[in-house]
Design a protein around this nucleic acid. Sequence first.
RNA 1: UGGGGUGUAGCCAAGUGGUAAGGCAGCGGGUUUUGAUCCCGCCAUGCGGAGGUUCAAGUCCUCCCACCCCAGCCA
Length: 563
Amino acid sequence: MTADTQTDAPSNEKPLNFLEQQIKDDLETGKNQQVITRFPPEPNGYLHIGHAKSICLNFGLAETFGGVCHLRFDDTNPAKEDQEYIDAIVRDVEWLGYEWGGAIRYASSYFQQLYEWAVYLIEEGKAYVCHLSAEETREYRGTLTEAGKDSPYRSRSVEENLAEFEKMRFGEYDEGACILRAKIDMASPNINMRDPALYRIRKQSHHQTGDTWCIYPSYDFAHGQEDAIEGITHSICTLEFADHRPLYNWFIENLPVPSQPRQFEFGRLNLNYTVTSKRKLKQLVDESYVDGWDDPRMPTIAGLRRRGVTPAALRKFCEMIGVTKSDGIVEMAMLDHAIRDDLDKNAPRAMCVLNPIKVTLTNYPEGKTETMIAPGHPNRDDLGERKLPFSREILIDAADFREEANKKYKRLVIGKRVRLRNAYIIEADECIKDAAGNITEVKARYIEGTVGNDPEDGIKAKGVIHWVDAVNHVAFEVRLYSRLFSDEAPDSGDKNFLDHINPESLTVLPHCVGEIGLLDAEAEQTYQFEREGYFCCDRTCCDRKNNSLVFNQTITLRDTFNG
RNA sequence: UGGGGUGUAGCCAAGUGGUAAGGCAGCGGGUUUUGAUCCCGCCAUGCGGAGGUUCAAGUCCUCCCACCCCAGCCA
């Protein structure tokens, strides 16, 4: 192409997303000296995977541009909030591995300042107390296509508004009797600008401020000012707030705030086969469709955690899906990939038989015991090795034996050989059935000298199956999970998501057996049970002494076998 | 029918006038004591549609279409 040989080296650098580009520009042009972002959940429920995207975005942006990210509770509505949620949210953000700058912030700690700014707006003639009922307010607001009309209270004097607002603040009015409104434009094509509510009366005690207040600022009046107080440079929220940006800016321009934050919007995460709406997730919990916010089937961060998903997997997933302003629906397969990718690299291996049947090795001496050695991970020496007791009687999975089978079946068949993983090759001779015809035992022979070697007679085994010693093992319960919803878009259109709950999302296997080393499994450790999938030692049921050990299936191994 | 947003493969997503990155899924093959992992190959004459500008258009202009969000004293 040109004389000087320029290798068009494929750039490995990930292209910047639109927010990274924005911040890079702002830093380069000197618009901002540093970047300060914030993750501002309302403590009215547990965080879900959509929040994970926002967390990775906000904390990630601060991280890559050498700034800080605040954790701030947007607790402006005591009616819906609870300390339990605050605690859970803090736990989830920490678990994801992010550190926020400074102390945890609360919108409620700015209530006094916000109140003074409300008074300021009144004094400027830009806010008024309105006594229209909620219904009247709606009527006066107009519609999407028709302008609204001014409230009869809109033209009150500053003095009267001041006095009325004070009466609101000191509890002289009942809830709903009046609100403080901004005086902007009842004919604005943007409905958010039609004299929005600034303060409403809520005679409820607040989890942080107790009974100090009986009036609480609205989201619109609080959020931008919170950002300004904290010096947030880039206030990032989801697309549905784009219409609020002019109002966000109106407050920043009309109030003596200490900094000039700017709002940017990105597309929220939608995942198929699930719902990501706090309201709906709360309903699943409240109406006992699941066992709690951290039920392993829930798309909450707490649920994913209990399921065995790692912070690294979630972060990888967020990186994979990108950040844009288009609203798409991400396939669950992407999340699955991120989970398997991390777990394959990092999960220690173990053997576990989900549906045990006994195999007796008729030519193996009674009373003899050997110890097989297996790697903790096929390509991670740092994960050590495992000791596997082996004797005359072992347990294999019922699915790994058939009396007869076609040649696509690579497991144990009468008259055929199979490799016992990390141990001998065996050959099946016969099976024993109970009265109902179920196979209860297989009689087989082991081939001497085949640990780590092929048989001397040259007849190799076609497949490999996992096993556990019949005596020297640990018994536990395994819980298998499949998707909570059977519909790809359970809450789309006019569907009721509750109609699409998968009745078979949980399968309990009470009598599983695992290799003896699992006795030392720690809560929340995820293992790969070879040939079966990934399983996580349940946080609440990890007491082997009292026989209450439980493993939650995180995800199966990828299965491309089609035969 | 008002305002705000978004349309690139089955899904996510780069692309900033110079001839369509990457990932997921899928398909084919190789390695393998996990039907896993890993490795190799295939997978958009076309970017919502129609016109136009230009030597050159996914990128610029015009019109049209589709989808999402907004009428809480929720966030």
